[in-house]
Design a binder for these strands. Structure first.
Lengths: 301, 301
DNA sequence: CTTGCTTACGAGACTCGTAATAATT
DNA sequence: AATTATTACGAGTCTCGTAAGCAAG
């Protein structure tokens, strides 16, 4: 038995039991991969894959057990390298992060800037996706860390840490009727066209829940995954925006646009939607590089 | 990197950093082992061992980290084989048990007898030792399961399961003065010569504690690790015995000896010592063979 | 008839053991 | 002087890639 066989097995499963695709991904030959897997099966004395003639169709029960153990072994092999790098060369490396737009655009930049001064030799790669896509990217090893507000805390195969909390805020053009009110209520909000996040994203669940609890039916005329897109449509006068407070600052508005009538303003409303908790997640049991931990610490507040 | 290097590293540490001894244990050559370890260090980019000239003196900090991960990897490699065997040939194998004398002599026999009918192809090897020795035998991989009443539950690197509870009983020759009493008290016991277990063994702690709580100083004239040895000296008239109730049955006494005056009897005393819990332990995270789980289940009651 | 797994075979790499060397205790 | 690790080197093994074969959709 050797590690190569285990890597081959994992990749074959990841590529949906297509040996050709797995061989390609592993930069090796299909026959070699085929042989390696058969040898592993022989040595363990079990069949891992059910074969229909010459096609692999699915995993056996034994194969599922074996695969789970193999995943753990390869994770620990990776930990061996990571831990060694932490001792030998803690400064250099690669940091692949998956985050939602809001995190990538608003909460990550200062943390990454800080990281770049602490660890100038570390290459940072930023991927974007929905929370569920982020979870998949972590699982498949495409990224090291995932940052999101939804879906990321309750995965059994991921470890996670709390980063920070935030609330939604409500924004509109100064000319909007709601801007006349001294205090805006949820009821008032429900009477206007609203623009906010796609259901998967950025605490949208909390928004729907708040309206539901007040037995209100909000008129959401536009959904987007991206705070900037939402703000753009609010500027066009399509409605009132509900975005993460991370994504809105009246100072930035003042800088950005020249005309005061274009500047979005925050409506006076007292945190109508529940608190959101942004978390970072990574593979369960994975040892973190020092710079990974540094990034996480830099984002905590 | 390959698994051989990891096995070599573990064995070297187990043999106190003596490459010659490790090479011997691994049935390989010293130079090969030396080279393998240097190559592992090179590949990981760290030094694992501090060297004084040509001697390995101790582990580096990085080495300690690496070793912990290597132990986990090798455990999982072992799990791969064990899990496969559970699917492919659940009937055959080897079962190495470490137990104290009392367990080996009194509680294990029926369970092992049952196991032998369920799994006639399994070879059972029985080792004896003190609870701390048993823990060491599990740690070093000399045995698969350890069974004892002391020391075995609170090891962080071992998993364990409760098996059963038992109490101590007090035994004496029928001619002993205490046999005249309708009920024996702890105070009465403290006035006679006592024979019981060595401090490490079979719940001796509970015996001392009970006397202490009653501010009594028992006269323990003989200590042994072995219930049978204790019974033998009780038969010789050296004193009153305190043994596990597992190790004493008046029926067995009736069968064993012909003369009624030789038969030990249980004194009427109402469980003066705290309950003992016998547990089974094995390496943390180790997958159990089916027959191992069967033995454990057979011992639970 | 295309896609995809397996078998066959040979060049190159690698492993591992022996012998010699060097450094501690 | 004895013990123990490292270096050198070569025989045997193993890995892995190419080419050919063959089964399934």
């Amino acid at each position: 038995m050797n590690l190569q066989q285990l890597r081959y097995l994992r990749e074959t499963v990841r590529r949906d039991l297509n040996l050709t695709a797995a061989a390609l991904a592993l930069h090796t030959s299909q026959p070699g991969l085929s042989k390696a897997i058969r040898e592993l099966e022989d040595e363990l004395g079990i069949t891992i894959f059910v074969r229909h003639g010459k096609r692999l169709t699915h995993l056996t029960d034994a194969g599922r057990d074996v695969l789970a153990i193999v995943e753990r072994i390869l994770l620990e092999i990776d930990n061996l390298k990571r831990s060694s790098m932490n001792w030998h060369d803690a400064q250099t490396g690669e940091l692949r992060i998956a985050a939602t737009h809001t995190q990538a655009r608003y909460s990550l930049p200062p943390a990454i800037a800080r990281l770049r001064t602490q660890y100038p030799e570390v290459t940072v790669r930023l991927h974007q996706g929905s929370p569920t896509q982020i979870v998949e990217m972590i699982r498949s090893g495409q990224v090291d860390l995932g940052i999101a507000t939804e879906a990321i805390g309750q995965q059994a195969d991921l470890d996670s840490e709390d980063l920070f909390c935030w609330y939604h805020c409500v924004i509109a053009l100064p000319s909007h009727p709601l801007c006349q009110l001294a205090e805006v209520s949820l009821e008032a909000l429900a009477e206007h066209d609203l623009i906010t996040y796609d259901p998967q994203f950025a605490g949208r669940g909390h928004i729907d829940r708040a309206f539901n609890e007040h037995r209100l039916k909000p008129r959401i005329v536009l959904e987007a995954t991206d705070s900037d897109v939402i703000k753009t449509y609010v500027r066009l006068g399509l409605g009132v925006g509900i975005v993460s407070e991370l994504a809105f600052s009246e100072d930035d508005e003042a800088e950005g646009s020249t005309m005061a009538t274009d500047r979005l303003v925050r409506l006076p409303i007292d945190r109508p939607f529940a608190r959101n908790l942004t978390r970072v997640a990574f593979l369960h049991g994975r040892i973190l590089r020092r710079y990974e931990q540094a990034l996480i610490d830099a984002m905590k507040h």
